[in-house]
C-alpha cells in the first residue's frame, strides 16, 4: 500500500474543523495541502484512509472538505445556520448587482466599498441592519458589522485577505460550495414561476 502523505495530520486537523481547502488560496500552507491531495492517487488514498475513521473526504470544484454521517442530528440548528448563510449570500449578491460585479469565486472586494454602497443604497443598508438578528453580527456601527461578517466568512474559509494594505479580500473556490448548496434546493413548480 502506498504511504500516506506526511501532511495527512495537517489535512485532518484543517478539515475536521469544518474548513475547506481551496486551490486558489493565497495562503501557502493551504495551497500546499490542496496540491498534496490533488497529486497522483493521493485523493483516493486519503479518502480510503479517512473513511476508516468515519470521515468522507469530499471533492468540489477546486476545493476539498469533510463530511460525516451524523449520529444525532440537530435539524433546527442546521436550518438556522442555513438561514444565516442565505441572508449573508443575499446581502453580498445584492451589493454585487448594485455595483455590477459578480460575487463569486475570484471576486476581489473591499469592506470600504461595501460600506460606501450601504451609505447610498437604502435597500443594502436595510439588509445589513437585518443581519443584526444574528448575535455575532449585532454591532452598533455598520462598519463594525461589515467587519464581523467578513471575519465570519474568513473563519469559515470562504474568503481570504488578499491585500492587507488596500484591505481587499478574495472569494475562494470553496464559496461555490454555498452556491451549490442553495442551488440544489427545488422550489415547488408553481412558486418558482
Amino acid at each position: 500500500m502506498p504511504a500516506l502523505p506526511s501532511v495527512t495530520i495537517d489535512i485532518f486537523d484543517f478539515l475536521s474543523k469544518g474548513n475547506f481547502i481551496s486551490e486558489d488560496s493565497t495562503n501557502d500552507e493551504t495551497k500546499d495541502l490542496f496540491r498534496v491531495i490533488d497529486r497522483n492517487d493521493n485523493f483516493e488514498l486519503l479518502r480510503d484512509y479517512f473513511l476508516n475513521i468515519g470521515f468522507i473526504l469530499e471533492k468540489g470544484a477546486g476545493y476539498y472538505y469533510f463530511s460525516r454521517k451524523e449520529k444525532k442530528q440537530n435539524l433546527e440548528r442546521k436550518i438556522e445556520q442555513a438561514y444565516k448563510w442565505l441572508d449573508i449570500l443575499d446581502f453580498f449578491r445584492y451589493y454585487a448587482s448594485a455595483v455590477k460585479i459578480i460575487f463569486s469565486q475570484g471576486t476581489i472586494f473591499s469592506p470600504t466599498k461595501i460600506l460606501l454602497q450601504c451609505r447610498t443604497n437604502e435597500e443594502l443598508a436595510n439588509k445589513l441592519k437585518k443581519l443584526k438578528q444574528y448575535h455575532e453580527f449585532n454591532k452598533e456601527k455598520p462598519s463594525e458589522q461589515i467587519d464581523k461578517i467578513i471575519e465570519h466568512l474568513v473563519n469559515e474559509t470562504f474568503i481570504e485577505l488578499q491585500n492587507p494594505y488596500s484591505e481587499e479580500y478574495k472569494v475562494l473556490a470553496a464559496f461555490s460550495y454555498l452556491e451549490k448548496f442553495f442551488n440544489s434546493i427545488n422550489i415547488s413548480d408553481k412558486l418558482s414561476e
Binding site: 475536521s16 469533510f66 463530511s67 460525516r68 451524523e70 442546521k78 440544489s184 434546493i185 422550489i187 415547488s188
Partner: peptide, 21 residues
Amino acid sequence: TTSNFETIIQNETSLFFQQDL
C-alpha cells in the same frame, strides 16, 4: 413547506453544517 429545503439540509452531512468536533 414549499421546497425540499428540509430534505436537502437533512441529507447534507458536511462538517460545515455540523457542530464543532
